[in-house]
Design a binder for these strands. Structure first.
Length: 467
RNA sequence: GCGCCGGUAGCUCAAUUGGCAGAGCAUUUGACUCUUAAUCAACAGGUUCCGGGUUCAAGUCCCGGCCGGCGCACCA
């Protein structure tokens, strides 16, 4: 029997369950449907057989009778997991199960492997992540989480478009990996005989488009960082970055809270979500708290970027953090914040006033030259977004990059690479602009109520199996 | 990269102190005209992750490796 090339499918399980809800036990509707999906369960009973078929919307029972179904013997020999296309009347069985009474059926494709135990499904992480196609049939929560991610991406796009942002695409293969302090992946282009880096952020390209006159741009794309893998980190992840000319960081914070709360509303219908058994608020407006203030509260002692560097270093030492000789007061404060206050930020909160030292692309704060007009948002103790008033002075940008180069020379692993083309772009004039980056996987984890990033990534990065 | 834990049939899991490697589901065969994780009967299914070692005897203990989970580090 050759495998069919097509099936004239005209009905879905969930819609049938709804539109024939009125059928009484034992009643026949007189209406026929063409349904298709996978056989998930099969109950043969002599000259009749029942199958539970699942499609992308839900499940419906297939009811086959010898003498009524034209190829009953083949039906009763189906395997769990086989794809079928069925034509038959919609009926409700005597025992009350809505069913398609099989007139004809075709096996559309065979399943050579099963989809796990009927009860337990597939639980082995290795199998689930390496063969997500099987996991998706075996585990309802896997389907739900990836569906939520898709709903989220859609909502983000629609809200960005609605706010007048235009979607653009910038290079993934780049001659310099800059725009974030992260180790890049390196690859090689043969014809150009040049090494390229996979981007660690689209930031610098996007700002060049603003220089070019596109006032509001966004990119939703994959970035790559050659760093550790954990429940909260995948080497490739999806970032939303957007830039708005004429805005400052305050404007961007307002946009951020509206965007994230709006997306939660679109996906979940609420901005008061439950995450890991605990209520979490994404409702705007979010608290806006200077880093120094949060850190002082957590430490029980007043600190700021103006506290002597060695005093801050001393507090870090007490907390068991190894202080690098090249760290100034700004870096020390940021480290102290991460070590003390960060984890406690449960409801969505903006942390503001990041030190210049850790913010090489941010504009200095208009009230304090040691600080920047930068914010990060946190939820469930984790960073969700990062944004700032963009540094648009090419001379200062050059000196900030040079500071980064000095730190690299002093032995710091993760620093930002100098990008001459970007500095030249700034020389053409970047208007006052605010930018935002949102970790889409992190947001998806919140919306899907998952604790592990891999659950919202269809095919997370795994080590290849070697012989 | 480091630490802890794990890997047994296609799937989910057992296996006492080191003493014959098992069950349910799936597959195969048979019975059954209203099942719902159908039921009943039978057959088959194993490089116990891989490679060494200790021992009369290793799924179990030891060493090395592979892969995964969690934590740390790095980072978002």
């Amino acid at each position: 029997m050759t495998s069919p090339y097509q099936f004239a499918h005209d009905a879905y399980a969930a819609a049938l369950q709804t539109s024939f809800a009125h059928l009484e036990d034992g009643e026949e509707s007189g209406e026929s449907a063409h349904v298709a999906g996978r056989v998930m369960l099969l109950r043969r009973q002599g000259r009749l057989a029942f199958a539970t078929m699942r499609d992308s919307t839900g499940e419906i029972q297939l009811f086959a009778l010898d003498g009524v179904a034209e190829n009953f013997d083949e039906f009763s020999k189906l395997h769990l997991g086989d794809w079928v296309g069925v034509v038959g009347e919609i009926v409700r069985t005597k025992r009350g199960e809505l069913s398609v009474k099989v007139a004809t059926f075709e096996r559309l494709a065979e399943a050579r492997h099963n989809f796990g135990d009927k009860w337990a499904g597939i639980t082995d992480f290795d199998l689930r992540y390496r063969h997500r196609e099987a996991d998706l049939w075996a585990n309802e929560t896997s389907r739900r989480s990836l569906q939520r991610r898709s709903d989220m991406i859609r909502a983000v796009r629609e809200r960005c478009w609605a706010a007048g942002f235009m979607e653009v695409e910038t290079p993934i293969l780049t001659p310099v990996a800059s725009g974030a302090s992260a180790r890049p992946f390196v690859t090689h282009h043969n014809a150009l005989d040049s090494d390229f880096y996979l981007r660690v952020a689209p930031e610098l390209w996007l700002k060049r488009l603003v220089v070019g006159g596109f006032e509001r741009v966004f990119e939703l794309g994959r970035v790559f960082r050659n760093e550790g893998v954990s429940p909260r980190h995948n080497p490739e992840f999806t970032m939303l970055e957007l830039y708005a000319a004429y805005w400052d960081f305050e404007d961007m914070m307002s946009f951020t809270e509206e965007l994230v709360a709006g997306v939660a509303l679109d996906v979940l219908g609420t901005t008061e979500i439950e995450y890991q058994g605990r209520q979490l608020s994404l409702s705007a407006p979010w608290a806006r708290r200077p880093m120094a203030e949060l850190t002082s509260e957590a430490l029980g002692v007043e600190v700021s970027v103006h506290t002597p560097r060695d005093v801050l270093a001393g507090y870090l030492g007490e907390r068991g953090v190894e202080v690098h000789a090249s760290w100034g007061a700004g870096r020390c404060l940021a480290e102290l914040f991460e070590n003390s206050a960060e984890e406690g930020l449960w409801d969505a909160t903006f942390v503001t006033e990041y030190p210049v030292e850790v913010s090489p692309l941010s504009r200095r704060h208009r009230r304090d030259a040691e600080l920047t007009e930068r914010f990060e948002s946190y939820a469930a103790g984790r960073e969700l977004s990062n944004g700032f008033s963009e540094l648009n002075d090419p001379d200062e940008q050059r000196s900030r990059f040079e500071d980064q180069a000095r730190l690299a020379a002093a032995g710091q692993d993760e620093t930002m690479a100098i990008d001459e083309d970007y500095i030249r772009a700034l020389e053409w004039g970047l208007p006052p602009t605010a930018g935002l980056g949102v970790g889409m996987d992190r947001l998806a984890v919140l919306l899907a109520d998952e604790s592990n990033l891999r659950e919202v990534i269809a095919f997370p990065t795994l080590k290849p199996v070697r012989d």
